[in-house]
């Protein structure tokens, strides 16, 4: 199975330098080293950041800060680690007193609803008692989709009527959160493109309504980003962050061949960390983000030709 092999891949690459970098270790030609790294970084969707890193590497080589071309890969890996830290110690900031609210946002089809289900499973494993809000009142059968997951997970799902306003659903869900014994609310929202102003202000409104009942909520606003996203990723994160400040990214669909390198730009430019990764369509295909594993996989050359 795809997923299993990816997970095997992750552990296999752990603590060892990847194939390409190892190969480069013996290569002293600066030009070849830089070109190989360039291709690796760009095809992983790292984008313009790749160029600035490679320029930096070259000048460090000239100034002697990097001893020889064969040291470049190690230097690069360190630089990337600095840009993309682990989420420490817990990926989720829970409310100190009272219940916690997590808001899940993203563009259409990025994997929000599935990620909500995965997040709920993770919370259950952490010993929490989650509650779900189906605030995608726009897309056909979106509520049904989430409710199927909530049944499978055995958690309550707050849903509005067919025509309800998403903010009203969020409001009802907060009220339910305060009156039930649930301690975390996860809100699924409709997919929206960051270029649609009215839909972005709808998100603002949802956040505002939540605050009325729970002033320090949402405790986390998580952007679900498809790992296949290219350079538009940063623009997505920027615009979503402008309407509801983002606390983290859930990087979905890493079980494909895309490397998800665009999150490096998001972390560097906007300071928004990656908190979880999605590795498949089932609720267990979900892991807390680990920077080292992620970068190992990122710098692994394309497995398929």
């Amino acid at each position: 199975m795809v997923l299993a092999s990816f997970k095997r891949g992750l552990t296999r690459t752990r603590n060892r330098i990847s194939h390409a970098l190892r190969k480069l270790g013996g290569d002293t030609s600066t030009q070849v080293t830089l070109e190989t790294l360039e291709e690796l970084l760009y095809t992983a969707d790292v984008g313009p950041l790749a160029e600035s890193l490679l320029i930096e590497a070259e000048s460090k080589l000239q100034s002697g800060d990097i001893g020889s071309p064969s040291d470049i890969p190690a230097w690069l890996q360190n630089s990337l680690r600095e840009i993309l830290p682990d989420s420490n110690p817990s990926p989720i900031r829970f409310a100190e007193i009272g219940p916690t609210v997590l808001l899940v946002v993203g563009v259409n089809g990025s994997g929000k609803t599935t990620s909500v289900a995965k997040l709920v499973r993770w919370l259950q494993e952490q010993g929490r008692r989650p509650l779900i809000a189906a605030a995608d009142t726009f897309r056909a059968a979106a509520v049904e989709q989430l409710c199927i997951w909530s049944e499978r997970l055995g958690v309550e799902c707050v849903r509005g009527s067919d025509t309800s306003d998403p903010a009203a659903v969020a409001h009802d869900a907060c009220a339910r959160l305060l009156s039930s014994d649930a301690d975390v609310l996860v809100i699924d929202t409709a997919g929206r493109l960051h270029t649609q102003k009215n839909l972005m202000s709808e998100l603002e409104k949802i956040a505002r309504i939540i605050k009325r009942q729970i002033p320090d909520a949402p405790h986390e606003t998580l952007l679900v980003m498809d790992a296949t996203t290219g350079q538009n990723a940063i623009q997505q994160a920027r615009r979503f962050g402008e309407s509801t400040p983002l606390s983290g990214v859930i990087l979905s669909k890493l079980d494909g061949t895309a490397k998800g390198g665009a999150v490096l730009g998001i972390s560097r430019e906007l300071g928004v960390p990656v908190k979880f990764i999605g590795l498949g369509e089932q609720v267990d295909d979900f892991e807390v983000f680990n920077s080292e594993e992620f970068l190992e996989a990122l710098l692994e050359p394309q497995s398929v030709e």
């Binding site: 095809t43 498809d226 296949t228 996203t229 290219g230 350079q231 990723a233 895309a258 398929v304």
Partner: peptide
């Protein structure tokens, strides 16, 4: 194909 896709588009 999602128009926001990056480098992986070619592969898939």
């Amino acid at each position: 194909l999602d128009s926001m896709t990056g480098q992986d588009a070619v592969e898939s």
